[in-house]
């Protein structure tokens, strides 16, 4: 484990990859706060196991005052804020010409405005406290084309581009910002893919297997550890499919 004794926010930690990141970071002795729109049983389990080192509240990532208040609340509870992982997002499985306007707005709001608001609130705090680490979970879709994912892909490409600009804006303040871009992994989001499609992806992947939550965690752990001097980079965790 590289990340220890930190105060960390992971957005969308109620299930999927976010839940795994939260659980592993807590196991390593960090204090971790997360939010999602809906509460899950896993949140009660973590509260029971980790007490004050864990904090969950129901919150929509696009609720700007709510997100700002959440960052303040976490900083007060945990005595600071060292790292943020922007993980919350929604997927897409529609060709653009058959996607309604509301869906386009929902995806761009949650996947673009959401992480931008959390990052903005966090860097204000980190500026004053002497630094920190931001890690956005983007996707191989931000750099490679996949049909049915145009708006989602655009949102991930945005995260990559925003990250590079921000590295220039806040790097000197000791804030490290990098993205981890996973390939497809099994979760509720990717459950629209049929087993044959997952097999095709595996066949085209040099490592022969999809990444899993733990593979991604290992990289996130390193990225937010504050030990690497890595700044403004997208790290692909995809078994080589984008190589």
């Amino acid at each position: 484990m590289h990340t220890q004794n930190q105060s960390i926010i992971v957005s969308g930690g109620s299930r999927g990859l976010g839940l795994h990141l939260v659980s592993r970071l807590l196991e390593a002795g960090n204090k971790v706060a997360t939010f999602a729109r809906s509460h899950t049983a896993a949140m009660d389990d973590l509260s029971a196991k980790y007490g004050d080192a864990f904090y969950f509240t129901p919150l929509d990532a696009v609720d700007a005052p709510g997100v700002t208040a959440f960052v303040m609340e976490v900083s007060d509870r945990f005595g600071g804020l060292d790292s943020v992982v922007n993980n919350a997002a929604i997927g897409q499985d529609q060709l653009l010409m058959h996607t309604d306007v509301e869906t386009i707005q929902r995806i761009t709001n949650i996947n673009i405005v959401g992480p931008t608001l959390l990052t903005r609130a966090a860097i204000k705090h980190m500026m004053l406290s002497g630094g920190g680490n931001i890690c956005n979970i983007s996707s191989i879709c931000g750099s490679r084309g996949y049909a049915g994912l145009s708006v989602y892909a655009g949102s991930k490409g945005y995260l990559d581009a925003m990250m590079r600009a921000l590295a220039r804006e806040v790097g000197e303040a000791g804030i490290f910002i990098n993205n981890v871009a996973p390939g497809f992994f099994e979760s509720e989001m990717s459950s629209v893919l049929r087993p044959e499609q997952l097999d095709t992806i595996k066949r085209r992947t040099p490592s022969g297997s999809l990444s899993n939550d733990e593979n991604i965690f290992k990289v996130v752990d390193l990225v937010i550890s504050g030990t690497t001097n890595m700044q403004g980079q997208v790290v692909f965790v995809d078994g080589g499919i984008t190589s």
Partner: peptide, 11 residues
């Protein structure tokens, strides 16, 4: 009017 639908239904 527009018809919007998931790619899964096309598959």
């Amino acid at each position: 009017r527009e018809l919007s639908f998931e790619a899964a239904s096309m598959r």
